[in-house]
Design a binder for these strands. Structure first.
Lengths: 198, 198
DNA sequence: CAAGGATGGTACCGATCGGTTCTATCCGAT
DNA sequence: ATCGGATAGAACCGATCGGTACCATCCTTG
């Protein structure tokens, strides 16, 4: 075996650990809210190791956001897939899942949006846009299966509800935000489906 | 006259100039995206002057966000007031106004949300929460006048649409975001009003 | 046991940060 | 004419920033 998997000296494992811990810390403190030195201390790794794996702090941020976007999106896709065939049920499941997220004590809003708000560098903005695109795909799919008259329009409106609920939950009050958004979403879905059936 | 209004040495005028220019620059570059030295150069003022007026950079940020929140909110309140008595028309007017904002080339999302995403200091979060509260008040008022069954719920859902539309416009594509959100908002409004009439 | 890559720890680098202080200037009020 | 508050400009401060270099150590492979 060329690579000693499972060992503490496994580079891939080290990289994964950095990614995981750094993601949590940078989400909590903000991208510029903690320096590389303290970040390394929190992760339990030397600066040289961090820089060997990610090149620069921006490189770490980029890798982190990409991984997180992927994780979150496929989580939501799984939620939809597990919700059966009824589009209404699928949509409900999305907002129920979001509510669980909002109730997490470490919830601080969407990491991608937070990052894009502070870091004006181009890769971050691109990752954020791609993230929203995948959300949009997911929601448009539900709209299509529900027989909406204009599934792309409905998908975009549902995306606004998702993002708006996240903003409100993060900055005002998370209690019930998911449920309230779900009600609105179902109203939009049923209204659009009736129009599509006509 | 104790205060030489209109003079270049009028402290109030100086303060207002700093506030105005710094608001634009910090919105464009991000709160941590520009140092005090460069900021002063852009404003055309010395560091001592800036610090005499605002104490610290955070003080400037705080004053700036407070003023901007007030400006934006009363602008929207004016839009509603100018839209006549029909709640549907008032709601439409809000989203039309938002669309104008999204179309502004300097649009970069909600300044309060951007600030709260990067600066974890308490005053900023409080200003942001208060800002959302005033939005919520405005929208709940419309919901009440429309005879919604649950105006507070509808108000919150409309707030999510407003914030969601702003997020989508800022990070994905601003074209038509206001109109799409408006359609959704009117659907929610009419559905809730029918329920309220029963 | 020897060799080599991965690592932690630490010192260090230049740049920049927010903030302070000093001085010369300028303008309006008396 | 003079006085005082407001200002610009620049030097300066300690702290921190992102990033690099060096070395001792440890583990895995051969």
């Amino acid at each position: 075996m060329p690579v000693p998997k499972g060992s503490t000296l496994d580079p891939e494992r080290t990289r994964a650990t950095i990614l995981q811990t750094a993601t949590a810390v940078l989400y909590e403190r903000g991208l510029d809210g903690i320096g590389v030195a303290e970040l390394c201390a929190r992760v339990g790794v030397s600066k040289e190791t961090l820089y060997r794996h990610f090149g620069t702090k921006d490189g770490l941020v980029e890798a982190m956001l990409t991984a997180r976007s992927e994780r979150v999106t496929s989580w939501l896709e799984g939620v939809v897939a597990a919700a059966g065939d009824d589009p209404c049920h699928q949509l409900s499941a999305v907002f129920d899942a979001l509510q669980q997220w909002y109730d997490d004590p470490v919830f601080r809003g969407c990491a991608m949006l937070n990052a894009a708000a502070q870091h004006h560098v181009e890769p971050v903005r691109a990752i954020t846009a791609r993230h929203l695109d995948r959300y949009l795909e997911l929601l448009t799919g539900i709209a299509e299966r529900a027989g909406a008259a204009d599934p792309h329009l409905l998908g975009r409106q549902l995306l606004m509800l998702v993002e708006g609920a996240t903003v409100v939950a993060a900055h005002q009050d998370g209690a019930g935000a998911g449920e309230h958004a779900r009600q609105a979403a179902l109203t939009l879905l049923s209204t659009a489906s009736e129009a599509g059936d006509r």
